[in-house]
Design a binder for these strands. Structure first.
Length: 297
DNA sequence: CGCATTTGACCCGCGC
DNA sequence: GCGCGGGTCAAATGCG
């Protein structure tokens, strides 16, 4: 790829706004459905697509660009936490090409950054003009077609370039601390390969391709139901009564305030067990037609 | 033994 | 049509 150099090629054609919207999107499903009934907001014109192709894939907008983009979109909540979150994501040179999202994350030691999902490697290729091979991963849940590609940055040895396809970015971003933050301790404490028996319940969740965050939420569900008492929470009633993981999880993940807590706590991703339960249900938005697990069960 | 990873073969789209 | 490069498949291999 043409990654070696200019990073000022960001195409200011509205894709920037799409990225910000993607990060703030609280309506979309975790995964992009293969049927295409629900897709990430598509780039509208062919010209835009080709312009993006021509542009540097890994280039990213500058912070001030994002601030401008944020201020230009009227119906977004202008919470400073969200601006911070956007900044942290875009410092990773986040970019979007069609339905693929590319970002840079700090790799940890010998491992790859764990985004909380369970992936199976299905291929590896050496890439022309790149000293580092690219690895191909599929989400282990066969019902989804989420994929990702992982490649070491040629410039920065400790940086990984990850391209997600079929998975909305705002569901993995809490796992990635800002590039310029303190060393990312995540993998030191939580290697990608988890001991299987020690976390049997977690593995069960992971078997569905759920991120670890969701498992945590199962643990916090009780807190939500009792301590927070769901005041103003638009969660379906059965969540409170049955505590179904499939129903609870999206609510928490979608809670921007909660995400912000995770982000601010993310210098140590492995300490996810200590993540605070959501506190501010008032900012939730549930679509009446929203079904978080359209192909589940 | 079961599961994940590795790795060469194969497929496909694109440019010449 | 051909070659090249990127993406996927699947048999072989490794590992717990």
């Amino acid at each position: 790829m043409e990654e070696g150099g200019e990073k000022d090629d960001w195409v200011d054609d509205g894709s920037q706004e799409e990225l910000v919207r993607e990060l703030l999107d609280e309506e979309s499903l975790f995964f992009v459905l293969s049927q295409g009934t629900i897709q990430p907001k598509a780039i509208t014109s062919e010209e835009e697509v080709s312009k993006q192709r021509l542009s540097n894939v890994y280039s990213g907008p500058r912070i001030e660009d994002i601030e401008n983009a944020l201020s230009s979109v009227s119906n977004w909540k202008d919470q400073p936490q969200q601006t911070t979150r956007i900044k942290s994501m875009l410092e990773r040179n986040l970019s979007k090409i069609e339905s693929k999202y590319t970002l840079k994350v700090r790799s940890c030691g010998n491992g790859m950054a764990d985004d909380g999902y369970k992936w199976r490697k299905y291929g590896q290729k050496s890439i022309k003009n790149s000293p580092n091979p690219r690895s191909y991963y599929k989400c282990t849940n066969p019902r989804y077609n989420a994929k990702k590609q992982v490649e070491k940055s040629r410039d920065e040895a400790d940086t990984l370039i990850i391209t997600y396809e079929g998975l909305h970015l705002h569901f993995v971003d809490p796992y990635f601390p800002p590039l310029n933050d303190q060393p990312f301790q995540h993998d030191n404490n939580a290697p990608t390969k988890k001991p299987k028996k020690a976390i049997s319940e977690s593995d069960e969740s992971r078997a569905f391709g759920l991120p670890q965050t969701m498992q945590i939420q199962e643990a916090t569900t009780n807190n939500i139901n009792s301590a927070v008492s769901l005041e103003g929470c638009p969660c379906p009633q059965e969540v409170a009564s049955e505590g179904l993981l499939e129903d609870v999880v999206p609510w928490i993940i979608r809670n921007p305030f909660h995400n912000n807590i995770i982000s601010s706590n993310s210098t140590s991703c492995s300490s996810s067990q200590t993540r605070s339960p959501p506190v501010s249900p008032s900012s939730l938005s549930w679509s009446p037609n929203y079904n978080p697990w359209p192909v589940f069960i």
